[in-house]
């Protein structure tokens, strides 16, 4: 956590009461966002939860039906150019200019900002070095591996020295090594004081990188806070893993209903039952004779819960 950096003067992204409808469907419902300098705000939610729509409102692609977005104190609606000068965007899809080389992509991108980034060529060389792209500087982006393409996307988003960086699923499709190298870069950027908004489907990524998490379901924020707090709120303190095919399965199910607890999530032949401390004590007292494992919850449990149509 980087709570010590928080303060009104360090707030980089502030959104209040965001609402968006598509046709008559409300896809974003009174969402608030806060991201401070040196902080990563992770947004989690199943497909259709509203993450992309929120990001697109932050980029200025879509206008909210209600609510305000401020980027480093600048109202996005009043001064879209000013707001866009302060944000860097790394979209989920690669959107390089395929007619240009890696270096030219970075330089060319700087032409789309006013005031122009100062000492652009020097800045580009620094970015090429930092993102380990120098040896590919004259190559076309499509010849790069997936990990290097992502590096280029992040580097491009930083050419104009923004104050808020939006990363929309930055490591989707990368191998583990490439993912970790992107994590390190993101972590470095956080330490340098950038406010970062991250969406991801990888729960370990969200858990490791995020200082704060915002969990969305059907356009609404269902909880927010530090990763551990969010897990405690939504999943519980423990997860019991149990063979789903045991003869006592019905008894376990009935016990959960009687105790008013959440239904188990079934993964292959096992049940995963989220429980708090007293729930675990009760479960152990009732089913102490069964073989089961107990582990701490993780964001995968949360994601499975969010995508469970029954919940």
């Amino acid at each position: 956590m980087h709570a010590n950096k928080k303060g009104l003067d360090s707030i980089r992204l502030e959104a209040h009461g965001l609402v968006k409808h598509f046709a008559s469907r409300r896809v974003v419902d009174k969402v608030d966002l806060h991201c401070h300098a040196g902080e990563i705000l992770g947004m989690l939610g199943a497909n259709g939860a509203g993450k992309t729509t929120i990001l697109r409102m932050c980029y200025g692609f879509l206008q909210p039906d209600a609510g305000k977005i401020r980027i480093d104190g600048i109202d996005r609606l009043d001064d879209p150019d000013g707001a866009n000068r302060l944000i860097g965007v790394c979209t989920q899809d690669d959107t390089f200019d395929t007619d240009f080389s890696v270096r030219e992509n970075l330089i060319g991108f700087g032409n789309y900002f006013r005031p122009r980034p100062s000492h652009i060529e020097q800045r580009v060389e620094q970015l090429l070095e930092r993102f380990d792209l120098a040896r590919h500087a004259d190559a076309k982006p499509e010849t790069l591996s997936g990990g290097y393409r992502r590096r280029l996307m992040v580097a491009r988003a930083l050419v104009h020295q923004p104050k808020v960086l939006f990363l929309d699923e930055p490591t989707t499709g990368l191998d583990p090594q490439a993912r970790m190298s992107v994590w390190e870069l993101v972590d470095d950027l956080r330490r340098e004081g950038l406010g970062i908004v991250l969406t991801t489907h990888y729960m370990d990524e969200a858990e490791r990188l995020s200082d704060n998490l915002l969990v969305l379901k059907e356009g609404k924020v269902i909880t927010s806070g530090g990763p551990r707090t969010v897990l405690g709120d939504l999943v519980g303190e423990h997860v019991v893993i149990l063979d789903a095919n045991i003869p006592e399965a019905d008894a376990v199910r009935q016990w959960l209903v009687m105790e008013g607890l959440k239904r188990p999530t079934k993964i292959l032949n096992s049940w995963q039952i989220p429980l708090d401390g007293s729930g675990l004590a009760g479960f152990s007292a009732t089913f102490g004779q069964l073989r089961f494992e107990v582990r701490p919850p993780n964001l995968d449990d949360l994601f499975l819960q969010l995508t469970d149509k029954r919940s």
């Binding site: 965007v89 959107t95 200019d97 007619d99």
Partner: peptide
Amino acid sequence: YQKTWEGQLTTQVR
């Protein structure tokens, strides 16, 4: 195909 527009739209270009 090239998504050049989308890249431009992440800047001050509308």
